[in-house]
């Protein structure tokens, strides 16, 4: 998703005039099963709630009103800001952000280490780091849950060796969710950073060292600015899916780590649900993500021009 220009360098025209025919299936399938559904979802967010799940086709701003404003239990008090849902969004952004930082702190040194191996070893290291990604996300998350539960192997090991005398109580915490998100999306950080470091010209480090820079000064003043595009791409690739994640918060987090994904999911479950409200929450989530992507795309084009 990061850096693939439409088409590519060569402007070959062997199938000139056939673009419409060749792209028709793409337009039909993505148009029908994603574009129209998203448009429909936008419409649903402005409809009236039907109590058995679903909607009544009547225009209403209730969903957004409910999201942002508190009008009291019976809806007759003067509106004040409703913090519940904004809070959930804020917490999600915070969690996703911390997970991204965790991925960066672990992922950058890992990507650096891999990219500075001999070319033969790089593929093997990359394979080692990416193989878990190909394991079903649910399985991975369940495995993490199993490992860090209070009665799980991690605590059992630590207790039996006497390092701790009570379980860590890791499960159902924010940290567990971040760990889960880290586990889910780490390759998204490692791969773009790796690609950037692999292209890095070590003569720059040598030039900096020649000009009296220490190792860590080189990292701060030369390497990081040069590989920054890869780091930003990695951060986006981790942050965006983390924001709307469902499995990690649902399985690893407790009630206190309730995130957007779970909030939305709940609105579509049986009679307790509220479809327009769920649609509105999804719309808000999508808007946030689109803004992030847009800002990113802007900075990319600026960089390309510079």
């Amino acid at each position: 998703m990061a850096a693939m220009a439409p088409g590519g360098a060569s402007n070959s025209e062997i199938y000139k005039g056939n673009a419409g025919k060749l792209l028709l299936p793409t337009w039909l399938v993505i148009g029908f099963f994603l574009l129209i559904p998203v448009a429909l979802m936008a419409i649903y967010s402005f409809l009236t709630k039907e109590f058995r799940g679903g909607v009544i086709w009547e225009f209403s701003l209730t969903a957004y009103d409910q999201f942002f404003l508190n009008r009291g239990l019976f809806g007759d008090e003067p509106p004040s800001i409703e913090w519940t849902y904004i809070g959930i969004f804020w917490r999600s952004i915070w969690q996703a952000g911390l997970a991204t930082v965790l991925c960066l702190l672990i992922g950058f040194p890992t990507a650096w280490f891999i990219a500075t191996r001999a070319p033969r070893d790089r593929t093997i290291w990359l394979l080692i780091v990416t193989v878990p990604y190909w394991v079903n996300l649910l399985i991975r998350t369940v495995s993490m849950k199993f490992l860090i539960r209070d009665e799980g192997p991690l605590n059992a090991l630590l207790l039996s060796t006497g390092i701790i005398d009570a379980p860590l109580g890791l499960i159902n915490t924010n940290l567990a969710v971040q760990l889960g998100l880290f586990y889910s999306y780490l390759p998204f950080m490692v791969l773009p950073v790796y690609a950037a470091v692999e292209r890095y010209d070590f003569a720059l480090s040598e030039a900096a060292a020649d000009l009296y820079a220490s190792r860590w000064t080189i990292l701060r003043l030369v390497i990081l600015p040069v590989v920054k595009p890869g780091i930003i791409a990695g951060c986006i690739l981790v942050f965006v899916p983390s924001l709307g994640a469902f499995l990690a918060p649902d399985l690893l987090g407790g009630a206190k780590s309730f995130m957007i994904g779970s909030l939305i999911e709940e609105q579509f479950k049986g009679a307790a649900g509220n479809w327009p409200f769920g649609a509105a929450a999804a719309m808000i989530l999508m808007t946030i993500v689109m803004i992030v992507l847009l800002v990113y795309a802007r900075s990319q084009t600026r960089e390309a021009k510079a």
Partner: peptide, 30 residues
Amino acid sequence: HRAGRFKAKTASFALINLPLMVPEVVTAVA
């Protein structure tokens, strides 16, 4: 890659990548 430039090329590229940009839970709801 083989049809040169055409009118909806950028739009088509965005469309192909749309499923990657829309959060999964949004796709699910939609």
